[in-house]
Design a protein around this nucleic acid. Structure first.
Length: 274
DNA sequence: CGGGCGGCCTGGAGGC
DNA sequence: TGCCTCCAGGCCGCCC
């Protein structure tokens, strides 16, 4: 489901609503997520703790507590967080429940169970197996044309896969990869090692730009993304190619095409992208 | 080592 | 109505 802008939207909503609030109890109804939820550890580390911050690392939501513990949440493909009245009825796939002081609950719902919920000591966060191998953040100075040009020399992977590889760059998933490549005028199949410095400059700008605009619109909703308030993302209206195969390109009159990169759909305009 | 691919899951859509 | 296949916004880990 969520790429960087959608995770950012959830984090922003969370920050407004749960900052300074205390977790009274944790209940796990289903521990078989992407990684097994360690119930005892989770409960021991955050029960009774006050939320002092909410931030995003790559596509992870990081909820920080007073006791130097962070709750690491990944939404996978279908995960959602909802803040609801404590006595509202449980829904199917509500796997982890955080009871907050004030008769509200934060509920992690995830039909496909590709998500993750884990409490980590802050001192161990940087070296956490899911965190330590992450590449650069798209809004950091390290994400620039020169270093990515150099990083990509000799690589034969398609540029679409290259920019989606979280060991290099985090946050760019299937939608925004297609959209950024369209904006940069680069064909998704181009070998990363054959993208020159000029085109890397265009691509870096396109990625930052598309993510920035999507954040401003509250993300993209294709089927079911919702922020904490149950509101869909409005970037959907500004998509140029994603999900638009068979439709005419907004820039030239050519028809948008769909292709596959290792079982994932890629959309591009054969007229605008080379 | 880089790169390709299967697998993890449920559910919705569409074809027959 | 049902049954089947395909598809989905992520990402790990195995294989060559």
């Amino acid at each position: 489901m969520p790429e960087l802008p959608e995770v950012q939207a959830v984090c922003d909503g969370l920050r407004q609503k749960i900052l300074n609030r205390v977790v009274q109890a944790v209940q796990v109804h289903e521990c078989r997520l992407r990684w097994p939820v360690k119930i005892d550890e989770l409960s021991r580390l955050i029960t009774g703790q006050e939320v002092v911050g909410v931030r995003r690392i790559a596509k992870y939501i990081v909820i920080q507590f007073r006791n130097e513990v962070s709750l690491l949440i990944h939404l996978g493909m279908s995960g959602r967080l909802g803040l609801v009245d404590a006595n509202s009825s449980l829904r199917k796939h509500d796997h982890v429940i955080f009871s907050l002081m004030g008769e509200e609950e934060l509920r992690f719902n995830d039909p496909r169970r590709f998500g993750m919920v884990e409490a980590v000591e802050n001192s161990e966060l940087e070296e956490h197996p899911r965190i330590r191998n992450l590449g650069v953040e798209p809004f950091s100075p390290e994400f620039n044309a020169k270093s990515f040009y150099e990083l990509s020399r000799g690589s034969k992977v398609a540029i679409k896969k290259f920019i989606m590889d979280s060991k290099r760059l985090v946050g760019v998933g299937n939608i925004y990869a297609s959209e950024a490549l369209f904006r940069a005028g680069i064909h998704p199949n181009t070998q990363a090692g054959r993208v020159g410095l000029k085109r890397w400059e265009q691509l870096v700008v396109s990625i930052v730009d598309v993510l920035t605009k999507a954040i401003k619109r509250g993300g993209t909703t294709i089927r079911d993304f919702e922020n904490l308030d149950g509101v869909a993302g409005y970037f959907t209206k500004e998509l140029n190619v994603y999900g638009k195969d068979g439709q005419p390109c907004s820039c030239c009159e050519r028809v948008i095409r769909k292709m596959r990169h290792s079982a994932r759909s890629t959309y591009y305009c054969p007229g605008c992208q080379h």
